[in-house]
Simulated assay, not measured.
Amino acid sequence: MSKFMASVDQRTNLVGQNRLELLIFRLNSPQPYGINVFKVREVLQCPELTETPGSHQFVRGIAHLRGVPITVIDLSQATGGKPIADLATSFVLVTEYNRTTQGFLVGGVDRIVNINWEQIMPPPKGAGNNHYLTAVTKVDDKLVQVIDVEKVFAEISPPDETVSDTIKAEAASLDLTQLTVLVADDSSVARNQVKRALSSIGVKVQLVNDGREALRWLEAKAEEMGGDITSQVPLMISDIEMPEMDGYTLTAKVKAHPDLNKVHVVLHSSLSGVFNEAMVKKVGADQFIAKFHPDELASAVKHWMFS
């Protein structure tokens, strides 16, 4: 297991082009699940947990890792399953995203696989709106379900989505009625967070689920307008990890397109702890913002809409 943990630690410092390294794990059955390795800071056998009175029902306790308290969430319970029973044989995925660190209790860990984002598909449309998946893929002929851990954590510890009155007042003096911001994110929670924040300052938002859909939408808009689209769509906000086409690849394609290259691109990612600033510059993005801080996002939108 020490080699496995070292492998996780090493891979969280890597950034590829339209590639994903997926940590495969199990909950209460042989069904494989996945999480982006970039979100994982550490994998360890479940340590002793301290129960906290009054905590959320899915929080199994607090783990003290090198003197730092980490909330440990039962990922099986949080996604509608039975509690993980045997803590002695269980593992904790210590994750870092959305500017927070938390642990997820899982039944077991398998391995890391390196695959192309084109092999990652959105959840089937018939799955409804209440599932906890951002994507599915096949590994060794088995269907792997990628869990939306952002949604899980947001339900347990909802973030503050309120834009301050100061930012709202500044935006009120701007004419935003003819402008649209394109938002690309595979997480329904993240899309709606951005939409609510931007709508509160009067910004029109077009939502898409992944990078490929975003590129198609932009290209269709360019064809409709006969060229440069920035008079209507001056800004795109994109997640980095998305099915079919990641945010890095999407940004590079937008910046290389003669009709789209003037569109400003803000990469808005939960991968704040392991983000590679050099990669943003390489693909030509205009700014990186770690999820989720509504004032910071709204301020950036105000800036790039009129730059």
Rank of each mutant, 00 (worst) to 15 (best):
F4V: 06
A6F: 09
V8E: 08
V8T: 09
D9L: 11
N13Q: 13
N13R: 15
Q17H: 14
F25T: 00
P30L: 05
Q31K: 06
Q31L: 03
I35M: 09
N36L: 02
N36K: 03
N36V: 02
R41T: 07
E48P: 02
L49S: 03
L49R: 00
L49Y: 02
T50N: 13
T50G: 08
T52S: 07
H56L: 08
R60E: 06
I62D: 01
R66T: 10
R66D: 11
I73T: 14
I73A: 09
Q77L: 13
A78Q: 04
A78H: 04
K82V: 10
A85Y: 01
A85C: 02
L87C: 04
L87A: 08
A88I: 00
S90F: 00
T95Q: 12
R99D: 11
Q102H: 15
L105D: 05
V106Q: 01
G107R: 03
V109P: 01
I112D: 07
Q119Y: 05
I120E: 02
I120N: 01
K125Y: 06
G126S: 11
A127Q: 14
A127V: 13
N129S: 14
H131E: 05
Y132P: 02
L133Y: 09
T134K: 10
T137M: 03
V139T: 06
D141P: 00
K142N: 10
K142W: 03
K142F: 05
V144F: 11
V146N: 10
E150R: 11
V152W: 01
P158W: 04
T166P: 04
E170K: 12
D175Q: 08
A184C: 12
D186K: 07
S187Q: 06
S188N: 05
R191M: 05
V194E: 06
L198D: 14
I201P: 02
G202L: 12
V203P: 09
V205D: 12
Q206D: 14
L207C: 13
L207W: 10
N209R: 14
N209F: 13
G211V: 09
R212M: 15
A214T: 05
L218H: 13
E219D: 11
A222W: 11
G226W: 06
I229E: 08
T230P: 12
S231K: 14
Q232F: 13
D239S: 09
G247H: 06
L250E: 13
K253T: 15
V254T: 04
V254H: 02
N261K: 13
V263K: 02
S269M: 01
G273A: 12
V274Y: 08
V280P: 05
G284S: 11
G284W: 10
D286K: 11
F288Y: 14
F292K: 12
F292A: 10
P294E: 07
D295S: 00
E296W: 00
A298N: 03
A300G: 07
M305W: 07
F306Q: 15
